[in-house]
Nucleic acid binder design. Structure first.
Lengths: 147, 147
DNA sequence: CTGCTTGCAAATAGTTTGCACGTTC
DNA sequence: GAACGTGCAAACTATTTGCAAGCAG
């Protein structure tokens, strides 16, 4: 399955996917994808731009944004808004809810299954589907509360 | 109690409160407060600026932001971030959670008591206190889901 | 007359866009 | 050589800030 392939193989596969849609294989796109696969988690567009710059100094942030946008349209990545500040990006198959502490900025990633009961209850009570992929839950973490 | 006083009386009381702290009573501050009390709910700084401009065309948005900031420091108002776009402001005693539909933009206000069970459960499970005043819950409303 | 306030302009952060040139197929 | 992609500069949205002039107490 897809998730067991090596990062390089996955990058190549995505580039193939773009080509199949009449899009081009470019070094910028390849470098951006590689940066995405190399990243731990919650990277900003700026982070990716910096990383890509190390190999291709001419690549502009606007290209990074445009590429991230393209990848998101294809369902390959997602972006999430934490509290304030820039959006973060990650591979779409790495699905989770973000709990952000507005005091210390720490971001905790929670598995979908662990959160589902709450979202389900909200759905039942308010007929409202929380979009856990696109927005974080913001609050105070235990460490900051007790300090 | 405070909430049963007329808007004008409450504006006067807040101006007194400022004066008691060595701050000045200015027409800009009065007009901004009046706009806040006149507003239905979820008004942006821009909304307030427009309203204030009708009577005092010279008042700058920066003054609106500075005044809102002052009022927030005094605990008189709060601001909340909906999905994208500008923050919204309202009187601090009008406490509620916002459910924002990211598709149609509709904002539903939910009484704290109705949401508390969920926040309580999240607290128990993740040791995390969601800040319901400062950030909305973003998702899809029933009408948009079924469309 | 002291110093809090304000208007104005400019800076900021994050992201988007117009356009002419470059590159890929 | 079309069509797609990119760099660059500029625009944009929401908000903040520096500074000198303006008022309130």
């Amino acid at each position: 399955m897809t998730t067991t392939k090596s990062p390089d193989a996955r990058v190549a596969a995505i580039l193939d996917q773009l080509a199949a849609r009449g899009m081009r294989r470019t070094s910028a796109r390849q470098a951006i994808l590689e940066a995405l696969f190399a990243a731990e988690s919650h990277v900003t567009a700026e982070d990716i731009a910096v990383e890509v710059h190390r190999r291709f100094p001419s690549v502009d942030v606007s290209t990074v944004y445009r590429t991230l946008d393209t990848l998101e349209q294809l369902g390959i990545i997602d972006h999430t808004h934490l509290a304030h500040g820039p959006a973060i990006f990650h591979l779409a198959d790495d699905d989770h809810q973000h709990l952000v502490c507005e005091r210390c900025g720490r971001v905790e990633e929670v598995a979908p299954e662990k959160l589902e009961p709450f979202l389900e209850a909200l759905r039942a009570e308010f007929d409202f589907d929380v979009d856990r992929r696109h927005f974080a839950l913001v609050g105070i973490c235990a460490a900051c509360r007790d300090r």
